[in-house]
Every structure is written in structure tokens, then in C-alpha cells.
Amino acid sequence: MQPPLLSIKAVQMTFGGLMALNNFSLEVAAGELHGLIGPNGAGKTTVFNILTGFYRPTEGELSFAGTALNGLSPPAISRLGIARTFQNIRLFEELSVLENVLVPFQGRSRLSFWQAILRTPGFWREERWVRDRAWELLTRLDLAHHAMEPAGSLPYGQQRRLEIARALAAAPRLLLLDEPAAGLNPQETAALMALLQDLRRHYGLTILLIEHNMKFVMHICERLTVLDHGLIIAQGAPAEVRRDPRVIRAYLGADAGA
């Protein structure tokens, strides 16, 4: 059997006295679409923040494609092939849609300082390649006709798509999506499911996503991990997880408290 693309082992994360994640372990196989669910405050986004190097876990080991992630900086992790979107959209609002997608290519640039200053043929080759890739992404995500507009002026649903396009521009093998369907209407949600399947096939992506929309999660994810108060309470195929009494209790409990 192939080793998993992403492996998280016994991670613990505490903020002051607060335990945000306790003995969290997760393996995601290459090509898998894995869902991370759980009530608000369960620690789902903390997992993303640890994976991207934004938080240093108190304990535990992280490895991605055979490389240990512990102690790496966010840009270094990004260059290894992990990209994310944000729960509250964080686009570069004053930059145009096209520019938003161009920014991550800067982190991947292989040009030397002098090549860039002297505008060598290599510079123009890379420039053309980058622009072609950026337009390709915009076309695939159906944003090409808004390319020159400021990102902040796009309607909400398109901003969500642009965040995905921007993350893809960093050439990830693992894409972390933080509530990609939040705030989308049913048609948009259906379109997002189709889009994610298409992107997965086309870019050979592995996806780990956080989502509250159960219909979406049950429909699209191959495996689920359910978190509650920093603890994994269930892990497995959607059909099994949905019947798990602990999951039902966690969700009903959350509802009753709301």
C-alpha cells in the first residue's frame, strides 16, 4: 500500500490552558477527498493553521509526501505543495482578479534577481508561462471575464471561487478548503461540487475540507473525520459516520445549545 500523502500523528495544540486539539491523528491518501467536520469551536481550523505552519503544535508529528512539516515556515510549506482557502474570504481586494491569481506564482519563480532586473529571455519566457497558467485557471473557474476587475468588487460566490483559483496558483498537491460552501445557495453549492470533482481530476489534487453543510459533505467526501472539543469522535466513510451515536449526540448537543 502507498504511504499516505498527509500524515498527522498525535498532535496536541494548547493555547494557554485551553486544549484546542488533543491527540489528533489523521492520514489522507493521495487523491482522497477528506472532510473534517464538527460543531463550531471543535478545532477544525486549528488543524489547517497547524498544517500551513501558522501554528506550531505543542506535540505531535506532521509529514507531507515524506517530508516532516514540523518547524517549517508557511512559505516553505506552501512551496512543498499545500495551499488553503479561508473561512472568511481573504482575497487581496484592491488587486484585480488576475493579479490575485498571479501573486502565488511569484513564490514559485525560479528567476534570479539579475534575470528579473535585466529582463532576460528567460524572464519573458517565465512571464508568458505564468500569464498563460493564470488565464487557464481563471477560465477553468469561470472567472476570466472578470479578470481586470478588483477582486473586492466580485459577488460573494465568485470571491469564493477566486480564493480557490488563487490557492491553485500555488500549485498545491493538497488543497485545504475552509468552509467552501458557506453562504452559497443550493445551485451554487451543486456547482461547487462539480467544480471540485473537475479540479481533482484535472490537477490530481488531494482535498481536505472543513464544512458545515452536511448534504455537501455526505455527497462529496470519501472519508470523514469528526471533531468535537478538540477530540476525534469518529473517522470513516460518510455512511458509517452519519450513524455513529457519538456524532449524532455531538451535533444534537450543539443544536440544543444554540
Binding site: F54, P74, P75, S78, P104, G107, R166, A170
Partner: peptide
């Protein structure tokens, strides 16, 4: 933060 997470050497 978002810029760093896109692989840019800030």
C-alpha cells in the same frame, strides 16, 4: 499572512 501562505518569501 495570506501572502505568506501563498509561498511568498515575505
Amino acid at each position: 499572512e495570506a501572502t505568506q501562505l501563498l509561498g511568498i518569501n515575505v
